[in-house]
Nucleic acid binder design. Structure first.
Lengths: 325, 325
DNA sequence: ATGAAAGCGCTAACAC
DNA sequence: GTGTTAGCGCTTTCAT
């Protein structure tokens, strides 16, 4: 791989001259610039960004840690973040923690060592204390760590209320919530609080099913949903904590010959693009994923630029009624 | 951020000594090692990987370029690649080209500049000549560039044949294929060739609908599928070039009150995890995505280690019959 | 067993 | 306008 030195030698100038044309800094005669540019072309020269980063202490990279990109919510989030970052000349280093504490911590250190300029955290297995060591601009998704670390989330409680009240408004008498893990310190747990509060307030029978410890183990979703129906055959409304879970509910209803929305109504959460192509198209609480992504990056960039930021960033979401209710 | 110098100063030794404990190389007295380790702990020291990479010319990073992570096939692929890479101490730099030639090229150069050790290309908008300039270990998905660049794909022709023959075996008399763009130089276009060949061979009426130029613009899928049905109301079998398209077909059938599989049968392609939770669960040609991901990385790592590789890597896929046929 | 020094590729004073 | 030089943080001979 050609270096700046090779170019300099070839043209017969000093490396600093080459560096000047590379950075468009200082004066150089047009003819020299021409020659240098030509030499770069010929040697297929590519400035070594690693060396540049070492010197500048600026990598133009940010880190994104999520549980797994293989979940539509996160892949959409990731996609928006990448796009927006690209517009602002940032590259994103994607890290999938797989909900593994070791891996999350390891990636956190890796990102630091890699001199990223900031980190967006969407995975939450590590403890609060660890964050103090990071000492890098940070933004969190769905988790409030401290009043020093801004977070963005949608209004989970309001979303849960919207969903539950909608089920009741549609006449459901016996409702269930099926949710991923409630054991992680995430704001999304408030969807569950809202569900319980609303059901209690209306004096409606209700139950909660926690599918699994981590929320992303869809292999056994159908099994547990079947169990729920076996136990309570007259459940007529379900609030799923994610559209992915909702999809499994629709599938299970299909397999059990329960008609949606006639026998049971279901409302999802997230508003991922797949929600509108499900059969039937899913009623769901849609989060403003794109805005959330861009807001997170804005907050990160502000910190990178030493600008003040707001720590609490809760975006509204919207119930979209389709055909499962 | 603490550097190796800070540690050295604090302990009162030379940086090379610190470097030694960092790399477990050479001899150092146990007591010194202890002290140094303690100092690192106290200063929360993190070796600067950028500096290390500059020296070693080894980044432990590979690049992955795909059209968009916001497509289940690629997010699953990406997930498997990341996992497998992690097991082999490689990090992956994810680049979404969005099918944009500029962006793909820009990312290609970025990856080189970033000193990645190799690149896996799943996006294919740039021309063959560009590849000669890359001069880095490369593996391609679904595209044969040259006999110097290994590629991995599933057996697209066989897959297309499997799907089409299955439709015919199920008694379809009037079949359509709905496919993404055929305009990109991808091996997956062979699914289409197989479809036509099989239909012709059996003398069955058939038509092909190309949804859009790039294959990932699902906004208007329902519209074009409706048009197809309006034009040919008696189509009774559809082969979709991806499970995502198949999902849109199922949805559109639902909206048009066409029963699947009674009125129209549909078979998808990919075997993404969502295929089994669709309603009805989708009959589809499943690609061995995980094996493909790991094979791609194996081929890349072999090149990195200067080992010989096989250039043609076509994996078999399997028709899984579920309830849409 | 530890230190001194050179160098990875690049940039930015500072000379001339 | 262009060259010289020091240095970014780290590793690795080569001394001692």
């Amino acid at each position: 791989m050609a270096t700046i030195k090779d170019i300099a030698n070839k043209v017969g100038v000093n490396v600093s001259t080459v560096s000047r044309v590379l950075n468009n800094r200082g004066y150089i005669s047009d003819s020299l610039r021409e020659n240098i540019l030509k030499a770069m072309e010929e040697l297929n020269y590519q400035p070594n960004e690693v060396a540049r980063t070492l010197f500048r202490k600026k990598s133009n990279m940010i880190g994104l840690i999520i549980p797994t990109v293989d979940h539509p919510f996160f892949s959409e989030l990731c996609n928006h973040i990448e796009n927006y970052a690209y517009q602002h000349q940032f590259k994103v280093l994607l890290c999938n923690s797989q909900h593994d504490k070791e891996k999350e911590l390891m990636y956190l250190n890796f990102l630091k060592a890699q001199q990223v300029e900031g980190i967006i955290m969407g995975s939450h297995t590590i403890d609060v204390e660890e964050f103090s060591k990071i000492d890098l601009p940070l933004v969190t998704f769905e988790r409030a760590i401290s009043d020093k670390i801004p977070f963005v989330s949608s209004d989970n409680y309001a979303g849960g209320r919207l969903a539950t009240e909608h089920l009741l408004a549609k006449g459901c008498k016996k409702i269930a919530m099926i949710t991923g893990s409630l054991g992680l310190p995430m704001l999304s747990n408030e969807r569950h609080s809202a569900f319980k509060d609303v059901a209690q307030k209306h004096g409606v029978w209700h139950t909660v099913l926690e599918t699994d410890i981590f929320g992303f183990n869809p292999e056994n979703y159908e099994g547990v949903i079947r169990q729920l129906f076996d136990l309570y055959p007259d459940i007529d409304g379900i609030f799923a904590s994610s559209d992915v879970i909702a999809a499994h509910i629709l599938k299970t209803c299909y397999m059990m010959n329960k008609s949606v929305p006639d026998d049971v109504k279901v409302v999802g959460y997230d508003g991922i693009s797949f929600s509108k192509v499900l059969v039937p198209p899913l009623t769901t609480v849609v989060q403003p994923i794109k805005q959330m992504a861009e807001l997170a990056l804005d907050l990160l960039m502000k910190q990178i630029n030493k600008e003040p930021v707001q720590y609490t960033n809760i975006l509204p979401n919207e119930l979209i009624v389709r055909q499962t209710t």
